[in-house]
């Protein structure tokens, strides 16, 4: 019976999402700009060898197995989309609280867990779709003249695809949980976006989504190691690109990410429960 209420709430979230194209577009717009503009201009590969195109081996060494900078970068954007897609969920929650939609679920005889869980699961499903769009677009770019695109040069197995999907799901879950918890705690969209703007770019810049950890200063490398975006992106890159450039196998990063998501999940559930209990 509890599953039924959970499914009903997930269905509600996804129906609303599908019906509002502006939400989908706004969470895609950032990664798209990075992909179509930023990533095209910032071609770190060109800096490797001023005289001519870098040798394949040199590029692989610089970009940890990826054949070129854009390939490296675009996979990072797939991870980044998990972050941008979840940003709006907390704001939506705040609006829903104001409009009374949340009260209707609070007053229903369902476990508090499913009120939180419905939004969490629906929130984590969305980036799978959005990440797929970013990934597909980057692949298409490779065949458009005048654009850099994503080239897969590794041995991608079925297991690898599974790992990539799970990694994306886990990183989405973590961020969705964090932003939902913030949404549960705050009452005004202004203060929410204030907090989110403080978190958004640092989470991107302290990850290895845009540039290899190897070129970061030591302290930033340490920060980056603990950034869930980095963990997810590591899993993806290890599966997509030439092997042998990471100290740990993809499964290691996946495990790390799972632990991380679990911890955040527990923490935010406690926070959400406080937000949902009668005051």
């Amino acid at each position: 019976m509890t599953y039924r209420s959970l499914f009903a709430l997930i269905r509600r979230e996804l129906l609303i999402w599908v019906r509002s194209p502006t939400g989908i577009i706004s969470s895609l717009i950032f990664p798209m700009m990075y992909l179509a503009l930023f990533g095209q201009a910032l071609n770190l590969g060109k800096l490797l060898n001023v005289a001519g195109p870098p040798s394949a081996a040199l590029a692989r060494a610089a970009f940890l197995g990826a054949p070129d900078y854009f390939s490296y970068f675009s996979v990072g954007m797939v991870g980044f989309v998990a972050l941008t897609a979840s940003l709006f969920l907390g704001a939506q929650l705040i609006f829903d609280k104001r409009l009374g939609y949340v009260k209707r679920t609070i007053v229903a005889p369902i476990p508090r867990m499913s009120i939180f869980g419905g939004r969490l699961i629906a929130g984590a499903i969305r980036p799978l779709f959005l990440g797929g769009v970013v990934f597909g677009l980057a692949l298409i770019f490779a065949h458009v003249s005048g654009l850099s695109g994503l080239t897969v040069n590794g041995h991608l197995t079925i297991l690898g695809v599974g790992e990539i999907i799970v990694a994306l799901l886990l990183v989405s879950l973590s961020f969705t949980a964090i932003f939902l918890a913030v949404g549960f705690l705050l009452e005004s969209p202004q203060s929410y976006f204030g907090i989110v703007n403080i978190l958004n770019l640092p989470l991107l810049f302290t990850s290895n989504a845009m540039y290899p950890q190897t070129i970061m200063p030591g302290w930033l490398q340490t920060v980056s190691m603990y950034n869930p975006v980095s963990m997810a992106v590591n899993v993806m890159r290890e599966n997509l690109f030439a092997p042998g450039f990471y100290p740990h196998p993809a499964e290691f990063y996946l495990g790390e990410l799972a632990l991380y998501a679990f911890g955040i999940g527990i923490l935010t559930f406690i926070i959400a429960r406080r937000g949902l209990s009668a005051r």
């Binding site: 019976m1 039924r4 209420s5 499914f7 009903a8 709430l9 269905r11 509600r12 129906l15 679920t105 229903a108 005889p109 369902i110």
Partner: peptide, 12 residues
């Protein structure tokens, strides 16, 4: 109708 269906599910 969707609103009512969701209500029905929430109330078992």
């Amino acid at each position: 109708r969707e609103n009512l269906e969701i209500s029905a599910a929430l109330y078992g």
